[in-house]
Amino acid sequence: MQARKKGNAQGIDVSHHQGDINFKKVAADGISFVFIKATQGKSFRSKTFLKFVKDAKAAGLMIGAYHYVDDSATTPDLARQEAANFAKAIKDAGGVSTFNLPPVMDYESNKSNLSKATVTAVAKAFLEEVERLTGVRPIVYTYPSFIGKFSGLSGYPLWIARYHATKAPSDASGWSRWEFWQYSDGQYGGTLPSGTRKVSGITGPVDLNEYNGTVDELRARFTKPPVSPDKAGTFTSGTFIANGKEAGKALLYGSRTYVPLRSLANALGLSYRWDNVRKEAYLNGSKLQTVQLIEGTAYVQLKPIADAYGAVVSWDSKNKIASLKTKGEK
């Protein structure tokens, strides 16, 4: 994998173990982003998560949330339950649009002695469920000693822990580059560009990270783009009804109706994926040409997709309701 380079954006990751944090001082010390622990296991939530999100955002830092996969997650179903806990915390913090950076799966322990195949199955179930619940493709965080337990996950952005100033992590499990490198735990490893491992506003050690690019490049890659409305610059908000049940918001741009990608995919019984890096939407494995990203949610044009899969669409202009009925539904 690539080495660190001068000018890379500097960041930290924190949890309740850090105690009180003055994020204004953190930001003033050259830190531009922070990943905040949200949850662990099926029910645990960090007691400082909501406060840290609010304070870090107010300080102007780019923020992301991470979940620690517990050793009790021994099956894909249990992993999906952990993902639900994580998604609920994100929702309670204001929703995925509150965050500048994608959600993170922190998977680094295997005290249950799972096989490599099971570890991969657990990780895949968690990642896919987080993406299904949030509409955002997650990041994988792990250590060089653990990454070999994964197979077929290299399509996800990688955040690797390697406590060394200059020695780059080795290519592994299909990954040949990192997006984020945790190069110090605050006591060992590399140092900040200032030559220290100390970050103002935090008492004690804190994990140090950097993005593979400048601050502007980090913002450009992960920060959500502005809404792309129709030529008139306006849209009408309504309700999306799928097979008689409310399935989300509908947006009318001129004569075209858009609905959430996830809601439409679920109604049609199709797989979907949102590539947050490229800002691209995929339905049933095919890339969609027209997508609107609004407040962190991907919206896609309703009628062409419905027609392609034999569903019927109607628009109630008086009540602003877009309805979809799939085959076999009355």
Score class of each variant (00 low, 15 high):
Leu268Asp: 08
Asp307Arg: 11
Arg273Phe: 00
Gly328Arg: 10
Asp13Pro: 06
Asp13Met: 08
Val291Asn: 04
Asp77Phe: 11
Ile202Val: 13
Ala168Ser: 14
Ser173Trp: 13
Gly11Met: 07
Pro193Ala: 02
Val140Thr: 09
Ala73Gly: 03
Pro260Glu: 07
Val291Gly: 09
Ser271Glu: 14
His67Thr: 04
Gly30Thr: 09
Ile12Gly: 00
Leu283Thr: 02
Tyr163Ile: 09
Ser112Lys: 12
Leu192Pro: 04
Phe146Gly: 07
Gly30Ala: 08
Arg278Pro: 00
Tyr282Ser: 06
Leu251Met: 13
Pro260Asn: 04
Leu208Val: 06
Glu295Arg: 14
Leu302Glu: 00
Ala84Leu: 03
Asn284Glu: 09
His17Ile: 10
Lys303Gln: 15
Thr223Asn: 14
Phe235His: 11
Glu280Arg: 13
Asn113Asp: 14
Ser263Val: 09
Asp77Val: 14
Leu251Lys: 05
Asp307Met: 01
Lys88Met: 12
Ile305Pro: 09
Val119His: 04
Tyr282Pro: 01
Ala311His: 03
Val300His: 04
Tyr143Asp: 07
Leu252Asp: 00
Tyr163Ala: 12
Glu131Trp: 03
Gln289His: 12
Asn100Leu: 02
Lys249Gln: 15
Phe126Ser: 05
Ile21Thr: 11
Asp216Glu: 15
Lys224Ala: 14
Trp315Gly: 10
Leu288Pro: 04
Arg256Gly: 01
Ser323Arg: 15
Glu179Trp: 05
Val14Ser: 05
Ala306Pro: 11
Gly11Ile: 05
Tyr163Asn: 10
Met1Ile: 11
Phe33Val: 04
Glu217Ser: 13
Ala93Ile: 07
Asn22Tyr: 08
Asn243Lys: 02
Asn100Ala: 15
Ser43Ile: 00
Phe240Gln: 05
Asp275His: 09
Asp216Lys: 13
Lys249Arg: 15
Ala89Lys: 06
Asp207Trp: 03
Ser255Gly: 05
Gly204Arg: 07
Ile63Arg: 02
Ser173Cys: 10
Phe44Thr: 11
Leu101Lys: 05
Val215Cys: 00
Thr196Glu: 07
Val259Cys: 06
Ala79Cys: 13
Leu208Phe: 10
Tyr211Glu: 04
Leu192His: 02
Ile12Glu: 03
Lys124Ala: 13
Gly285Pro: 01
Tyr272Asp: 13
Gly254Asn: 05
Pro102Leu: 10
Gly11His: 11
Tyr272Trp: 12
Ala242Cys: 05
Gly310Leu: 06
Val53Cys: 14
Gly254His: 10
Asp307Pro: 01
Gly233Phe: 07
Gly64Trp: 11
Lys24Val: 01
Lys88Asp: 14
Tyr66Asn: 12
